[in-house]
């Protein structure tokens, strides 16, 4: 079987996989990182979003082998080593941006990428458009948008440190 070597949340692993193994299957089934979820089979819900080399991508629409040699960050890897939550995590909790929590890992990973790539700041409307790839069935998005908005200044301040 082919082998894939990648660094996930700072830890490098080499794993044998069938060629047809998806990245999300590698993460969940082989590496035990079940924080990344699967909510659809048409690449539309964003429950599976992780970062690859700094970009948010849908882990259900990538072969594990395509991720060979990359740096992957999942929801399990965004808090600081001492357990301090990422500002986006903090703001999701503060603003009640989650209910059942199933969309949350993908939503948080998408949101971090969205805010990080837009240091000039995003309007409410831009945040809503930026979430085009993520579905949430519980919240009506109202509080997710609020949480992302609130995280902007925190994230940019942290990046400037």
């Amino acid at each position: 079987m082919p082998q894939v070597t990648l660094t996930v949340n700072g830890k490098t692993s080499s794993v044998e996989v069938e060629a047809r193994t998806l990245l999300v299957e590698l993460l969940r089934d082989k590496l035990g990182l079940t924080g990344t979820h699967v909510g659809c089979d048409t690449s539309q819900c964003g429950a599976c979003v992780v970062h690859i080399d700094g970009n948010s991508v849908k882990a259900c629409t990538m072969l594990a082998l395509q991720a060979d040699g990359t740096k992957v960050t999942t929801i399990e890897g965004i808090a600081a080593a001492d357990g301090t939550l990422h500002p986006m995590q903090e703001m999701f909790r503060e603003h009640h941006a989650l209910q059942c929590g199933f969309c949350t890992p993908g939503m948080v990973m998408s949101a971090i990428d969205l805010v990080a790539k837009n240091p000039q700041g995003l309007s409410e409307d831009e945040i809503r458009h930026g979430l085009e790839g993520n579905l949430c069935r519980c919240t009506g998005y109202h509080n997710i948008v609020k949480a992302i908005d609130a995280s902007q200044s925190l994230m940019h301040a942290k990046a400037a440190e």
Partner: peptide, 10 residues
């Protein structure tokens, strides 16, 4: 419950 959900520990 949020503490586990936002960390991927659900």
């Amino acid at each position: 419950e949020d503490l586990r959900f936002i960390s991927g520990n659900g």
